[in-house]
Amino acid sequence: MHEHELESLLKETLTRYADAHRDRIADLEYEIVEELPESRPNPRPRWSFALAGAAAVAAVFAIGLWVGLNLSAAPCSDPDVLCLVYPNAKSVSLASQFTLWEPVPMNGPDRSGVWWLRLPKDIKPGRYEYGFIVDGTRWVYDPRATEFVHTFDDKINSVLYVAPPEESEQP
C-alpha cells in the first residue's frame, strides 16, 4: 500500500465515521449556550474584580494616593471610556473621526487584558466612527458598540454618539 493510499484511506475513514455519528451533536451549540451563564469565562469575574478595584483606586485617588493608571483596572463602566479586551496585544490605539483618524495610544492593558481610553473632554456632540488598531496593523471594531458601518475598503467601523451635556443616553 502506497503512502498516499493510506493517507486517503485514513481521511476517508475518519470523515465517514464522524459523519455517521454527527446527529449526536446536532444541538450541541444550544446545550452549551444553556449551560454557559453559570460558567462565565475567567475575564468576567476578573472584570468584576477589576471594577471593584477601580472603585477602590478611585477612593485612594480621592485621598491623594493615586499610584498610576496602569496599576488600576480599566474604568470601562464609565460611559466616557472606550475599552477593548485584547490580552495578547502589544499595543492598541484608537483611531476615529474625532482624532482625524490619527491613532491615539490607549492605556493598558490592565490585569484582565483590557485597553482603555477616555474621550477628550472637549469632544463635540455628534456621531463619530472609530475603531481600534492592534499592534499597529490589525483593525478591530468595538464589540461593545451599538452601531457599525462597513467601510469602502471592507472594514467595519464602530459608531459612537456623543450627546450634548444635558443628555446622558446614546440614541
Binding site: I25, L28, E31, I32, E35, L36, S39, R40, P41, N42, P43, V85, Y86, P87, N88, A89, S112, G113, V134, D135, R138
Partner: peptide
C-alpha cells in the same frame, strides 16, 4: 466535544487573538 467547548470558553482569555 461538550467539555472542550466549555473549557475553551472558560479559558478564552488565554487564546492569542492573532
Amino acid at each position: 466535544a461538550h467539555d472542550a467547548f466549555i473549557r475553551a470558553y472558560e479559558g478564552l482569555h488565554t487564546f492569542h487573538l492573532d
